[in-house]
Amino acid sequence: MNAQVQIQVTASPGTGYNFAYLDEGTKRMIRRAILKAIAIPGYQVPFAAREMPMPYGWGTGGVQVTAAILGSSDVLKVIDQGADDTTNAVSIRRFFTATAGIATTTRTAEATVIQTRHRIPEAPLAEGQVLVYQVPIPEPLRFLEPRETETRQLHALAEYGLMHVKLYEDIARHGHIATTYAYPVEVAGRYVMDPSPTPKFDNPKMDDCPALQLFGAGREKRIYAIPPYTRVRSLDFEDHPFRVQSFDRPCALCGAEDVYLDEVVLDDAGGRMFVCSDTDHCETRRADGHTGEAA
C-alpha cells in the first residue's frame, strides 16, 4: 500500500509560510500527542519536536503546541513572567501575527489561547480557553533520578516516594518546604507532574480549572496536559502541608492583595516597590479605579 497522505496546505496569506509556521503534517502529529496527553492527564507524551526559528529556552515547546492548536479565529495572548511586554512575549506574539495572521490581545478575558512562561494569569480562566505552558524540564523526578529508563518506570508504577524525598530534603535543610516554583503536583490522582517553573503561588489555580492546560517541552520533546476540571494536588507532608507564598503588602500600583508580586528596583539607593507580576491584571484594576500607594 502506498497511500499518499493528503497534506492540506493552509498558507498564511502574504507571508510565504504555512499557517502558524508548521506544516500540516507536523501539526497533526503534535495534535495527536496533545490528544493523548489529554486522555492521560499529567503523563508526558513524547513527540517529534521540530526545530523552530528561535533558540531552545525561548519557548519552542510552547510555540509548537500553540501552532498546532491555533485556528484563524483564535485570539492569542502571550505572557512571560506575567508580563505581556517582555522580549520573549512580544517576539512570540509577533511570530504568530506574522505566520498566522491572527488577532492578539493582552487581556486575559479576551484571549482564547494564552501561551505562558512562568505564570498563570490572576484573572480566573474560563471554559474554552487554552493555557499553553513553556516547559524547560518536564521530568519532576530528574533531580533525584537521572536515569530516564528508571523515571519512566517510576511513573508507570506510580512510585512517587522519591518526590517526597525531595520535599524531605527541603524541610531538612530549610525547616520548611523551600521549593517555591516548579512545585510538583499530582494530577487526577495518578501522575506526578512538573507544572513548569511557575511559582507555587499559582499551583491552586491549576486545580479544577475550567480551561484546558497544555505543556510543551521543545528540547526534551514532551507534551503533557491537564484537562478542564481536573483535580491537581500539590504534594506535601501531613505535618508540613502545602502553602502558597503570601505577601505582606498589596500591589503598589493597583492595591491588589492575594496576587503574586514582583519586586521592582527603583533607584540605586535601595528604593524598591512590589507590583503585580500579571501586568494585564494590574492595568485592568487601575482602569477600574483601583490604586496602590505608589500610584
Partner: peptide, 9 residues
C-alpha cells in the same frame, strides 16, 4: 518509608 506511603515528616 516515603516509598510505602509515609507522609509525616
Amino acid at each position: 518509608l516515603m516509598g510505602v506511603g509515609d507522609r509525616h515528616y
